[in-house]
Design a binder for these strands. Sequence first.
DNA 1: GTTCAGACTTGGAAAAATTTTA
DNA 2: TAAAATTTTTCCAAGTCTGAAC
Length: 610
Amino acid sequence: MFQCNPHKPKKEEAEHPVTTKKKSKEEIEAAKALKIKKREEEEQQRWRWWEEDKYEDGIKWKFLEHRGPFFPPEYQHLPDNVNFYYNGKVVKLGLAAEEVALFFAQMLDHEYTTKDVFRNNFFKDWRKEMTLEERVLISDLNKCDFRELHTMHKEKVEARKVLSKEEKLVMKEANQKIVEEYGFCILDHHRERIGNFKIEPPGLFRGRGEHPKQGMLKKRIQPEDVIINCAKKSCIPEPPAGHHWKEVRHDNTVTWLASWTENVQGSCKYVMLNPSSKLKGEKDWEKYEVARRLKSCVNGIRQQYQQDIKSKQMETRQRAVALYFIDKLALRAGNEKEEGETADTVGCCSLRVEHITLHDLLEDKDCVVEFDFLGKDCIRYYNKVPVTKRVFKNLKLFMKNKEPGDDLFDRLNTCLLNKHLSSLLPGLTAKVFRTFNASITLQEQLQQLSNMTDNPAEKLLSYNRANRAVAVLCNHQRVPPKTFDQSMANLQSKIDGRREQLALAKSELKLAKKEVKAHSSDGKLQAVVERKKKAVQRCEEQLMKMEVQATNREENKQIALGTSKLNYLDPRISVAWCKNMEVPLDKIYNKSQRDKFAWAVDMTGADFIF
DNA sequence: GTTCAGACTTGGAAAAATTTTA
DNA sequence: TAAAATTTTTCCAAGTCTGAAC
């Protein structure tokens, strides 16, 4: 299609290499200036909702208008030369069965497709999409050959990667047009970014861990499945041609713009606003305010649950021990889940006897509880924690005469726990402890670790270490990137290289100094010395920067900082720290993080204390 | 009281975009 | 300038918590 274009720019470059280069440099400068200008404009246009009065309770908006969600394109038949084989023979599948076959084919490289549960679920749901004829023929997944479909898919992905600059630009612009049209709404006179305006495309459900439903077909959502929510007086979004909405409602006590029910788990999905929006920001701000209120009364609450551990009521005791864990270890609440519907994961209230081991003495410490369970997203929680004698004795009691699969806190659930908590402080729930402990930890760690006299790289290392302490507390883990070892080695060799360079620069400086001594009062030579000095200094700085970077990366190997930064740490702590330490905010927060926390950036001074 | 639907936050992986390096 | 590395964004699953229904 674009046959003649790709070579053109190259030719021009070859003809005027110098001017082109110059021009591009200027262009880069111009682009930078434009970016800054755009940013300033954005800043001026920003809705400073935090300076406005809040709405009465429960009202989320007064006016809401949007274009409705964006639907993924309809499925198109495979090209004629790409074939599916059953039992070695070409089988031309109908549209519905073919689409689902392609979902499986696309995942062939993934471990999922080797798992029995995944394969069985897929095959069962796939057969439902087949015609009677297809269903009669295709009775064994092992006889299915998807390889041509798989190859075609890989080639498509590859082809997208090697598009020319122009072609990529065309695609980018097309995407931006969609974002312009569907990606924003009008909420109370302000244009707000929508978070997920695209309807999730159909595909195979990929649960995490040993999910009993992995491989099931996630069906295509039609406009007839979608409920639209907008203001009565707004321009109601048009459904795609030939379709209608399931319902159009005007409920201003909720924040979603559209919703539908997903078929695998039967749960609701929502189109909601971007984190930078008023609706999300206000809620976020409130979350941290509740956590700060907890801070001011946490001592009393701690005293009380220490007392409650001695209570005659079993329920109260269990609640007290659970709360002790939630507070001390930042465990999640642990709602009960329907068995067999999801992977087997637990939180505090749903802990089972098999998840803890008691040690009267372990590694020189008394009364140690060894936790080992799968938490949210099947992330393993493993920890050995010394606890008070009273807690330890109670745990022994709770475990008495129980099977490994029995609930540790058999008299407790999250509802009971939260009811108690909200009676202590309005708005207090189990998860507030996580927010509070995360934020207070960040503040304390920053205080302890950072020094004004540190260089910028060291300051940043301290910030990351404080952030890391929180991530460890909250058990935010990641699998180390595949390229981790390699990238670590690369960095190390860069460091080694720089060290050599530094040694060389130092010896050159020495030599130059000698020269000056030999022929004193030679101005030229003195200048050389100065130059060499600067070179040494530059080298030292760069070396230091890289070493700090290496340390940071190594410490971060298995830890994910993102979640705590985005969801648990009061941004005002970070903003105040940046001001105090004279660190530019963009060293800590990228663009979308600054947008999300605009309220905090705007209202926080250097004196903020969580 | 218990169950269930609904609404919203939190979570890591993967994809995409951007920057750095060879 | 291509490709490798790194950062950012997107994706959508999986939690928490509330309030209504039974």
